[in-house]
Amino acid sequence: MKRETISDLKRLFQNGQLHDEMVQELKKDDRKGVQKIVQSYEKQKQKEAELEIKFEEMCQYEHRANSNGKEFVAGVDEAGRGPLAGPVVAAAVILPRDVKLLGLDDSKQLTEAMREKYFTFIKEHATSYHIAVIDNQTIDDMNIFEATKLAMTQSIQKLDIQPDHALIDAVQLHGLNCTSESIVKGDAKSISIAAASILAKVTRDRLMKEIHNEYPEYDFASNMGYGTKFHMAKLEKIGVTPYHRKSFAPVKNVLKGREERRATESV
């Protein structure tokens, strides 16, 4: 191999054009800059190997279901159980068996840019997916747990291809037309649930940004409806929006406090 400049080697590395045989030769090069490139290459290969191992671990539930004769396995997850405002969103995803999603994990552990990238990939490559949205009024009517189960059930039932088995993040669902299992912290253990987690969270975040445009004072685009100190201060000062969950204690308390003040002022 001809003696490349360090700049050329950096460019080859950045473009993914270095390979093991070239690196073995570069290890004989005594230039410090070259050895730094070799070290970076080996760290990258190590990270890729770790991601491969993690990916295989996260496919175990899917592989087991497939080996038991379940052809279509859906992962199911939700986003938005805890916030004081906005909908709860659930997604169900059936992935092809040969899909490769290295680095996919619990959506909360990824950056927004990474979630957006996976969101697009999953929608383009999924065998089938559906996203269900349950608004805050329905949450108030039936409570958040039941609303979450409703969203999850709808996301499964409205898939274009009905699953033979469903992997569900930490919730037991009944009345499905397929077998199912609940997996605690499933978004970090199952690749299908992790994919559903991405679709649910990105969809809900986008909805909260739309609500932010209506009520920018609450900064929903940043807090996503969670009860942050800023959000609570605005809730106390300005009051409740049509998107707030009135059955949630912090919102209920604000409403009660404002009613009591109005009653006192009218005396």
Rank of each mutant, 00 (worst) to 15 (best):
M1Y: 11
R3W: 01
T5E: 12
S7Q: 14
L9A: 02
R11H: 12
L12F: 14
F13M: 14
D20C: 04
M22V: 09
Q24K: 13
Q24N: 13
L26K: 10
D29P: 09
D30C: 12
R31W: 12
V34R: 06
K36S: 13
V38A: 08
Y41C: 08
Y41E: 03
Y41A: 04
K43G: 02
K43W: 00
E48L: 14
E50L: 14
E50K: 15
L51W: 05
E52N: 06
E57Q: 15
C59P: 02
Q60G: 03
Q60V: 11
Y61L: 10
R64E: 14
S67M: 12
K70L: 02
V73W: 02
G75P: 14
D77L: 06
R81W: 00
L84F: 09
A85C: 10
A85K: 06
V88S: 01
A91P: 03
A91F: 00
V93G: 02
V93S: 02
I94G: 01
P96A: 12
P96V: 12
R97V: 11
K100L: 13
L101P: 09
L101Y: 10
L101I: 11
L102G: 00
L102T: 01
G103A: 06
G103P: 10
Q109K: 15
L110F: 11
T111Q: 02
E112M: 12
A113L: 13
E116H: 11
F119I: 01
F119A: 05
F121E: 10
K123A: 02
A126E: 06
S128H: 03
S128R: 04
Y129V: 03
I131K: 00
A132M: 00
V133Y: 07
V133T: 11
I134G: 00
N136V: 09
N136A: 15
N136T: 13
T138A: 08
I139G: 01
M142Y: 01
N143W: 01
I144N: 01
K149P: 08
Q154K: 12
Q157D: 11
K158V: 00
K158M: 05
K158F: 07
I161L: 13
Q162M: 06
P163H: 10
P163I: 02
L167I: 09
A170K: 07
Q172G: 03
L176G: 01
C178A: 02
T179M: 07
E181Q: 15
K189V: 03
S190Y: 09
S192P: 13
I193N: 02
A195C: 09
S197A: 11
A200V: 03
T203V: 08
R206K: 15
K209F: 02
H212D: 15
F220K: 06
A221R: 11
M224Q: 14
M224V: 12
G225W: 06
G225C: 08
Y226G: 05
T228Q: 03
K229C: 05
M232H: 12
A233I: 07
K234V: 04
L235H: 06
E236M: 02
I238R: 02
H244W: 06
K246T: 15
S247D: 04
S247G: 08
S247F: 01
A249V: 07
A249M: 10
V254A: 11
V254Y: 07
G257Q: 15
R258F: 05
E259A: 14
R261F: 09
R261Y: 09
A263Q: 13
T264F: 15
S266W: 05
